[in-house]
Amino acid sequence: MTSSEIFSIITFIYGLATLLYVFSWIFKKALPGKIATAVTAGGAMGNLAGIILRWIESYQMGIGHAPLSNLYESLIFFAMTIALTHLFIEYRYKLRFVGVVASPIAFLVMAYASLPKVNDAIQPLIPALQSNWLIAHVMTCFVGYSAFAIAFGVSIMFLLKPSGNGPQSGIVSRFPDFDILDDLTHQMVMFGFLFLSIGIITGAVWANQAWGRYWGWDPKETWSLITWLIYATLLHARLMRDWKGKKIAVLSCVGFFAVIFTYFGVNLLPGLHSYQ
């Protein structure tokens, strides 16, 4: 089996996990939720196995390098970090509902990677990428992005959940309490902020190694800084008592749009970083 075949199966598995989580949530059944967790764990393991296999395949082609060097490979890694972060939250906070928002994101990321316009060939590394900093930089950035993705999903739940003392019916009112959602958003943003910071820092050190400058205001760098500033704003806004709940949830969504733009949108702008 090749790594590409494994990734097709993983896409399907994340899709299945999504269905199970949604089923368990709509019909208030615990069992499908438990199965969904197991399915997600299997998917994440398979995802990891696929990445390792792709790494081996690149060595067999004589151009061995860690599979983190183009858009396709970064998407695959991103999907895995989302699944793993989500499993960690389920385990740590005993909150199964997170799967309702995390699994579809992992699924969409894998599905996007399998579009024909995303080149899935194993390519050799161009000189600028021949550095161990590539691994540290890409890994930390995507761990950060995955936490922000989940914070985004949880914030969406927060915004959808009917507030006030009105009738608490319908499936959206079955989302957990506002306090739990709010706290989870905060936790995920802090986790993501730490990793995004490390990601930007490793990128800066690498740029200093390769080009002699740690910061050059190229669009990708600048957008990662914009993302970072938005989340820094969120963290500070939370320290002021009047910024809780809804405003934080909105900021977390804005932050995630900045993440998406840093990731995809920047390719539309001129610069060094574009992962084409």
Partner: peptide, 8 residues
């Protein structure tokens, strides 16, 4: 954050 966008 907002003004940085201009330069990109």
């Amino acid at each position: 954050a907002v003004t940085s966008i201009i330069g990109t």
